[in-house]
Design a binder for these strands. Structure first.
Lengths: 328, 328
DNA sequence: CTGAAAGCGCTTACAG
DNA sequence: CTGAAAGCGCTTACAG
């Protein structure tokens, strides 16, 4: 009934526990006959090595930490799913840290380190210099997700937000639209700053006046703000840093009788599930966030296997623009 | 630079490592002066006990497993957030298992057990008898989430789906609507079966003909099916087991020119973020899924503290119906 | 290819 | 209130 120990397996197989351990960790070092016998008994007894003991002895835990500010955002869920699928493939399990916005307070971070994981996947909206410093001193490999690393010592996987935003804006301009409103968050996020930068660059390139609206994170407040804004003008194109904001804006506009996309076009950012459930269906930049999680976990595996030889790299993932019903 | 060990702390404080350990685990057993000194040094050195060693020695890991089929569903994310917040409060960390639909294959489950967690929060859509059996033999406490347990040995936290569905249906009937369409999943899920049961009970009570539509999980297929269905009739009320389905149906209907709620009312189930982003805004049953996660983790804490005395209970959480724009 | 033994970093009765 | 010692269940050089 109780979980079998390695001793039990060794006893039943008539070998030493060292051999059982080898069968599990270095099967090639064990003679075929012995190996198969041990394996059979392991299966029979349903033996699974104790993770703590294993971790303590080998200094490896085959777990990775996934550190995120929240799990509520659809994009973060998709990313985690991508990580989870990849982790399963490589035999890693996941320790989840939902740290709120204060992820890199020394305290929160040392919790992560003390949990004895073999590597860390770190997703954060903000990237301050202290963050980099803290992370560079971390004893296990770290990969940034969804934000490209500015440090050569830390790898990352993400899209080039600035370039993406620049290209979308430019695309709309060359299609003949000049009055493009950019909606971002009031709260300062590194990724959103990059998106704004790209937008501004495109606008300035064409000598157009950038128009940036910083909206609150709260849906109800947003709607009120959006209504007020629409009192004074109807932009030709609205480009928002998140799908949810784009949709919220679109809904407010629809209710005022503004025809979408005829009178106003709306573009979102991310391609979360919201996009397909909106009416009209939202056109948006598709960030392959599942893939980003997936690849990040894969890269982390490499780093964990041979931290010395493998150089941290910044993997820039491709995005594409999906035109649905909210654009002409 | 390296992580400090308990020996280092003991050395620096001039005490034995037993004392350092006691300061951490049973501070009341240590004289105040000693305790404060040790605590100070711990802080200075940023010492965090090695989780594996601690787990191995104490047979406790202060980690719980959260086992879910996917992380992609908005409701599951909210639940995890609820769990995470509660876990942080009680000092537990989370090991996340994203197991797909085959969660209780003996294999997947023994992975969970082998990960040496102190307790398990288990969310699954299907609840077969083998599942119960497997779980009853688990050496640590388990709590079902979002589905009430049929077993007296396993606790659970969730809403009474059948009752809820019954009441919503009845409410619509007594408001004078007879033609109520129920949309559920093609794939068999225990929770959805319960919802259907409640719906049928209400309809039969009023001698109305139940009309159940089983829709695919795929959005594109759904839309096609919905269109075909709307060719033949326009139900007065549509009640779907998930917000996303309700919204998808609503959008298809809107596009055909059906006025919502004037000609057709739509009610969803869950109150995910989708509900507020739809146009018109979706009326739906609000399952307090964040709270469910939160409470489940709390209950699990109790069970882990004294598994013997604490009896597993089934906590039935209240739901409420939120009327927004998709109903009259 | 296999076994005996040391050690991973802690916790917890047991003495004192 | 504190220390010495055993032990948690593994892994991995080291011999053979």
């Amino acid at each position: 009934m109780n979980q079998a120990k390695i001793y039990d397996i060794a006893g039943a197989a008539g070998v030493s526990l060292a051999t059982v351990s080898r069968v599990l960790n270095h099967p090639e070092k064990v003679k075929k006959g012995t190996r198969e016998k041990v394996l059979r008994i392991i299966k029979e007894k349903g033996y699974k090595p104790n993770a703590n003991a294993r971790g303590l002895a080998s200094r490896k835990s085959t777990t990775v930490a996934v550190v995120v500010p929240t799990v509520l955002r659809a994009s973060i869920s998709e990313m985690i799913q991508g990580i989870a699928d990849s982790a399963k493939k490589y035999g890693y399990s996941i320790r989840l840290f939902v740290n709120g916005q204060h992820q890199t307070s020394t305290d929160a971070w040392s919790d992560v380190i003390a949990s004895s994981v073999d590597g860390i996947l770190f997703m954060n909206d903000e990237m301050e210099n202290e963050t980099y410093e803290l992370i560079e001193h971390t004893p296990v490999p770290v990969i940034f997700i969804n934000a490209l690393s500015k440090s050569t010592k830390i790898g990352s996987v993400g899209i080039d937000n600035e370039d993406c935003s620049y290209r979308v804006t430019k695309e709309m301009i060359t299609r003949g639209f000049k009055d493009i409103l950019f909606i971002t968050t009031e709260h300062k996020y590194a990724v959103n700053d990059l998106k704004e930068k790209g937008y501004r660059r495109a606008m300035e390139e064409f000598r157009l006046l950038p128009s940036v609206f910083k909206s609150s994170g709260d849906l109800a407040i947003n709607e009120k703000q959006f209504k007020e804004m629409l009192d004074s003008r109807t932009p030709e194109v609205v480009f928002a840093v998140r799908d949810s904001m784009a949709i919220s804006f679109m809904n407010v506009a629809s209710k005022r009788g503004i025809k979408i996309p005829a009178q106003m076009q709306v573009v979102g950012f991310q391609n979360t599930r919201y996009a397909e459930l909106s009416n009209p269906k939202l056109s948006c930049v598709e960030t392959p966030i599942y893939e980003i999680g997936n690849v990040a976990m894969e890269k982390l595996t490499e780093l964990m296997k041979n931290a010395e030889e493998t150089k941290p790299t910044n993997v820039v993932v491709d995005y594409r623009i999906i035109y649905r019903e909210s654009t002409k």
